[in-house]
Every structure is written in structure tokens, then in C-alpha cells.
Design a protein around this nucleic acid. Structure first.
Lengths: 203, 203
DNA sequence: GTCTATACGGCGATAGAC
DNA sequence: GTCTATCGCCGTATAGAC
């Protein structure tokens, strides 16, 4: 194993941590170099620029975390079971990396210029199969609401938003980190219930 | 009317627009001065620093937009009607200023150091009366779910998150701005329905 | 109050020695 | 590959003329 690979990885890891923690704009390349324990110039030797480094990290994060979600969405699982699994896996993923929501959010905010990353995020939500499934169940009269986009946005909102306002929830309720964790854990049951109830037709 | 008041206001307005559009960190003071059509030095004459200017703007935005929401939440309106009104007013407000969610989100992300602004946001959500109401209705067996924090987070998530991922929704569905507006308009009916259905006990 | 001019430090990036 | 040194630029802030 060459030493170069180690250095590149050290830069990559340090930058990932800092970008997630403080945001890209508030992280300087000097800070990254310091945290990685390497010289500033090496930053530009391995990655051409800060922006380029950011691009690599962002792609990695999305790819790493989206694979399983896409697999669930694209499967031919029964609709309600699919919702249960999707919510569960998504929440587990965000629980392990709670900063991801804010990070993606901030990218989304500044990405009217740079479309590249948007494409990556969009790929996260390959909803074709899910959409077909909703429309199909709708036609059969098995569900009560049939707008796929609305349903998907409901689901995403209920899953992700609480992580974006984590500090607010903690502050407002005097939660410890653990209590916030329990709060989120409850939502793993709650969100599928809410969604399925909103779809299930009256008996 | 003194000319100074005009200048201060011009700086304030230009900065507000830029902060909302590009985020605080990606907006330079030179840019603000240029947009306001004034000299750079005046920026520091009226507001001591960029950070200070940001503080003023942030407080203004929160205060301006939270008053009516707090009034609704604190009123003794019947619970379901309160939910309908809160959702409606909140969505109208965000529709008029869609960038507000991303803006607040980014502040939340970088505010582990500066608690000042958190306090302002927290005041936005004075949920005491709402909480009491939920617990009360719960005791009477009038509602099926009784965790006030969960209910409030559900509501906020369904209202605000779609604005944070606006560009994604537009991109994914090939929406025009108008179509996104209609999409959001539908949610003014949809969200209260979802929430109330999730609370209403089975007959 | 408004302007010009400028100081200062930190930034991203690179040239060039080793 | 890794380092030192340095570039030019930008954001912040202030001094001082008008």
C-alpha cells in the first residue's frame, strides 16, 4: 500500500468530517490540511481545488447512502411493506449520520449554478417504480390518495425534516442526545402508520 | 425624512435579498454595498459588522413572519380548526417567501456556537397552549395520538420541508414555477386532512 | 452622513526546491 | 510525494477628508 493513498484518504476523511460539521463555506483548506496532519499544498496536489474535493465527497456520501434506499423503492414489494421498510432504513441511515440532512440542504440551496450535484441527488430518488405502483393501486381502488409526488414528498418530509431541526427540538424540549434518539426511534413506527392510514380506504 | 434612514434601509434591503438568495456566507459586504448603490464604508458605519447586520435581518424576518403563527397557536380555537388555520397561514407565508426555509435551515446548521438566533427561532414555536390542548383532548379520548412534540414536528415537517427541496421537486417532475405553486396549494388542504385523520379516533 | 483610501489578515491556489 | 514560500484576491474594518 503506497503512502500516497493514505494521504489522499486522510485529506478526504478530514474534509468530509469538517464539511458535514461546519458546512463547506465555513471550512477552509488550511483547516482541512491541519486536521489531516498534512501540508496545505498536498490538498491541491491530490484534489485540484476545494470545490473539486467537495464534489468527490458529496458524490461519495450520496452514493454510499442511497443504494439501499433505491433498491427498496425499485423492488416489487407490496406498497405498505415498501413504505415501512423505506422509512425504517432511511431513518436508521440518518440516525447514524444526522448531519447529512443539513449538508444536503445547504447544497440544494446554493445549487442554482452548479447542476452537477443536483443530478446526483435526483438519482437518489428514482421513483418510477414507486410511482407506477401508486397509480396502479389507485386504479384498483386499493388506496384513497393517488398523487405519487405528494405521497413521496409527505414521506420524505416526515423522515428528514426532524433531523434538520434537531437542535431546535432538543432545545425546545430539553432533550438529551439520547432522548432525541428515542424521539426519532418512535418515528420509525409512527411515520409508516401515518402514511398508511392516509392511504388505506375506509372499510 | 433624513437621508440617512434611506441609506440604512437600502443596505438592509439589499443584504436581506442577497442573504436569502445566496446565503450569508456566500454574500460579501462589497456585494451588498454594490447592490445598495452605496459605499463600502457605510456598511460599517450603520451596522458594525456583517455578522451584526445579519443578526438584525434575521430577527426582523423571524418577527415579521412569526407573529400571526404564534397568535393562532396561542388562541383557544378548537384543535382541528387551529391546525387548519396554522397550516394555511404558514404555507401562505412560505409561498410568499420560499427562500425562508433554506435560510433558517442554514442558520440552524451553523448555530451551535451562536445561541442568540436559536432563541429567536424558539420563540417562533411557543407551543405551550397547543401542547396543553393536545394533552387535554387526549385525556378526554377525543384524539388517538397524544404526543404533542411528535404531532407538532409532523406538522412542521409537512409544511416546511417541501420548500427546502423545492428545486428537487421542480427538477424531478419537470414542474414550472406555477406548477410548483399549485403543488404547494394542494398541500394546504392535504396536510390538515392527513394530520386530522391521524388524530381522529375511529368511530 | 458620505466618501476615498488603505491596512490587515485569511483565503484558495501554485511554483519550485527537494 | 512532500515541503516552503509566496502570489493575488477578498472580506472586514478604520482613519480621515469633505
Amino acid at each position: 500500500m503506497s503512502k500516497s493513498k493514505n494521504t489522499e484518504q486522510k485529506i478526504f476523511d478530514a474534509a468530509t468530517e469538517l464539511f458535514l460539521e461546519k458546512g463547506v463555506d465555513r471550512t477552509s483548506v488550511r483547516e482541512i490540511a491541519a486536521k489531516a496532519g498534512i501540508n496545505l499544498a498536498l490538498m491541491n496536489y491530490y484534489f485540484r481545488s476545494k470545490e473539486n474535493l467537495f464534489g468527490s465527497i458529496f458524490s461519495m456520501l450520496v452514493q454510499k447512502n442511497s443504494e439501499e434506499l433505491i433498491r427498496i423503492l425499485d423492488s416489487d414489494m407490496e406498497l405498505f411493506e415498501k413504505i415501512r421498510q423505506y422509512v425504517g432504513v432511511y431513518i436508521d441511515m440518518l440516525s447514524e449520520n444526522p448531519l447529512l440532512v443539513s449538508f444536503v440542504m445547504s447544497i440544494l440551496h446554493r445549487s442554482r449554478e452548479r447542476i452537477t450535484e443536483m443530478k446526483v441527488i435526483s438519482s437518489l430518488y428514482s421513483t418510477d417504480q414507486f410511482t407506477r405502483q401508486i397509480l396502479d393501486e389507485g386504479k384498483k381502488g386499493n388506496i384513497r390518495r393517488t398523487d405519487p409526488t405528494q405521497i413521496f414528498v409527505d414521506m420524505l418530509s416526515l423522515i428528514a425534516f426532524p433531523f434538520a431541526i434537531k437542535m431546535l427540538v432538543i432545545d425546545k424540549n430539553n432533550f438529551t442526545e439520547e432522548e432525541f434518539g428515542e424521539f426519532i426511534l418512535e418515528r420509525k413506527k409512527r411515520i409508516p402508520e401515518l402514511l398508511i392510514e392516509s392511504l388505506r380506504p375506509p372499510r
